[in-house]
Design a binder for these strands. Structure first.
Lengths: 361, 361
DNA sequence: GTGAAAGCGCTAACAT
DNA sequence: ATGTTAGCGCTTTCAC
């Protein structure tokens, strides 16, 4: 025997047929193999370092034990890493492998890449978007076993997994309300309306819904909602600077993502306002950035890992109903929210946030 | 014919044997098939929407057209996304698929995951580390076709691809020198020595080497090198605050990564020092963060994409010599470096950096 | 209890 | 110019 050992080599060495080796190695239930033979086979396999050829096995079994992961932009955004990790770990737990493919938002490429996956007989596909949005299910995917990750598609009968943005909005509002804030609340970001997105972006619309609802239920409402098209630090800085220049005196800011909050931090600092003493800030996403800011940013986390994990789990457990699964977005309580100006009349509420220790880093 | 069409179905429909279909569809060079037959086959295949079964094909061809990507931590760090993207795109350009696996730094898991890949007959493997370091090539990988990504292994005969950190260090120093800085240069980070890493981290050692060398060649040297164990914003803040408190008057800071620079920005701001007017700052990595800072950070970029791409290219072109490929780290010239205090004697040098427009966002 | 043989879907050497 | 056949490495009836 030369090269990689085959089942035939194991059979030969153990003095049995390949059929018996297969039975033993796969531990087939209803098979009656003598204990002695069994041992001989196990030993032979071990000695040779035999490992079944997965390709041959897959061909015979008509199942590849792989799943395809299609993403529009593997890159950028904190989304990628944790999402893929969640998907991969879930797949691994069922002894499945993930085949990764990236389409770069190019429709033609997308078809090609998906076909490459299909040709390899993947058992199912995850179709992932890097930011939450509605998508048109690619035609090549119709009738396939697929789950949508971080996107959804009205009318196409496939399950989808997205973050529960509405509840995240509620959480953000609640954090502020529980700290006693009712007045002077400003929202930076809004629905994220822009030329490209005249109706705003999904996260923006949903977060606003939750914020508005919860505030209203408490009889409060934002002093103003500043729509921002690009949710980047520079826009956050511009928006908040403007606000301050216009004479507004915010007591609390809900920033529609961490990056806007970063800009807000700068603008507040420049105006000599301290966080959270003068102004409380709460945001969304929980990028790494959030814990790099000083004081550390209280934010509602995108559940990247869980979204990836659940998508694959649905696939593997064959839960293919056209349901939109909304994954909870957990609150990361840090240092940027403080109770509203504690009056001399003693402490108003429990204070969960530790006071930011200025200059201690 | 029911279900997915097979080569047999195409053959039947075109009235030929499967062999001929294979010849035509694979466009085999030395084969003489009548143009008419050829057309009939093409048409039949098209009508049926026939696609060869990749598993069967791979089994027959003894080549799976897949490559394995093993990483210690798919997650965190900006590394993941772009690196995987580079690897995937390069693979795709050769019609190969990437199988992704993550070991979570668990040695036992690592072996299992790698075996899963090997069982699937991957044609080669990329073994990736999320931060540059020396690794011990896992025994299961010995004798396999593997390239090390962002890591290297003395003594194991495999190629490695890492960022060219030494030259990055030189670049950082050069940027400052070219802006006229010679005195008052401080390095924040150093070799990154800590309890865990008593000899410092690879990036730290190499960056320092390049910095020292270039500075020395210009007859300059850092006023001080502040070693920092954890290269995070908080440490950068602490280090620079300390410096300032101790009465130092830095004119330029080389921060060993962007995150340290973020902390440095804060410390400088708190001390009322402006960047780049009072202090120039240059850093390494080019995380997203770098362009979020105000003023935008001049930094030497980690070539994530190229590292991923090159690793796969080496694998696919079979360049398996045990060479350490050092990928250039490009300079991202932004706003955080300014010429040293322009004397009344007119402009000293070309000024490439645009003046940071305070407050314009 | 174990082995012989068929067959997963494809390609390639060899016939014709 | 096209068809026949063997075989990639494995699993799984079905005989014995």
């Amino acid at each position: 025997m030369k090269g990689v050992p085959r089942i035939r080599d194991v059979a030969q060495r153990a003095g049995v047929s390949t059929a018996t080796v297969s039975l033993v190695l796969n531990d087939v239930s209803g098979s009656r193999v003598a204990a002695a033979t069994r041992d001989r086979i196990q030993e032979a396999a071990a000695q040779l370092g035999y490992r079944p050829n997965g390709l041959a096995r897959s061909l015979r079994l008509q199942s590849s034990a792989t799943i395809g992961f299609v993403s529009d932009e593997i890159a950028t955004t904190p989304f990628a890493g944790q999402t893929i990790l969640g998907a991969q770990e879930c797949a691994a737990s069922q002894r499945k492998l993930l085949m990764l493919v990236n389409t770069g938002r190019d429709a033609e490429m997308e078809v090609l890449e998906i076909m490459a996956l299909l040709d390899r007989q993947v058992e199912g596909l995850v179709y992932a978007s890097m930011y939450t949005r509605e998508v048109q299910l690619p035609v090549v995917l119709r009738g396939r076993k697929v789950v949508l990750l971080n996107c959804f598609s009205e009318g196409s009968e496939v399950p989808a997994v997205i973050p529960d943005e509405i509840n995240a909005g509620r959480t953000a509002a609640r954090v502020l309300l529980e700290a006693g804030h009712r007045d002077g609340i400003y929202v930076i970001g809004g629905i994220g309306q822009s030329e490209d997105q005249p109706a705003g972006i999904f996260a923006g619309r949903e977060r606003m819904r939750g914020i508005d609802e919860t505030l209203r239920q408490a009889g409060a409402r934002p002093k103003a909602v500043i729509n921002v098209g690009r949710w980047e630090p520079a826009s956050g800085f511009a928006a908040v600077s403007q606000l301050l220049n216009d004479g507004h005196k915010p007591k609390a800011l809900i920033c529609c993502n961490d990056r806007l909050a970063m800009g807000a931090y700068e603008a507040l600092a420049e105006a000599g306002l301290r966080i959270p003493d003068d102004v409380s800030v709460v945001a969304f996403d929980d990028q790494d950035l959030a814990s790099w800011l000083r004081p550390k940013l209280t934010t509602i986390a995108l559940p990247h890992y869980e979204i990836g994990r659940l998508s694959v789990e649905l696939l593997l457990t064959d839960r293919m109903e056209a349901v939109v699964h909304r994954v909870a977005m957990p609150l990361r309580l840090r240092e940027s929210v403080a109770p509203v100006a504690p009056l001399s009349s003693a402490h108003r509420r429990v204070r969960k946030t530790s006071r930011p220790t200025k200059g201690s880093a």
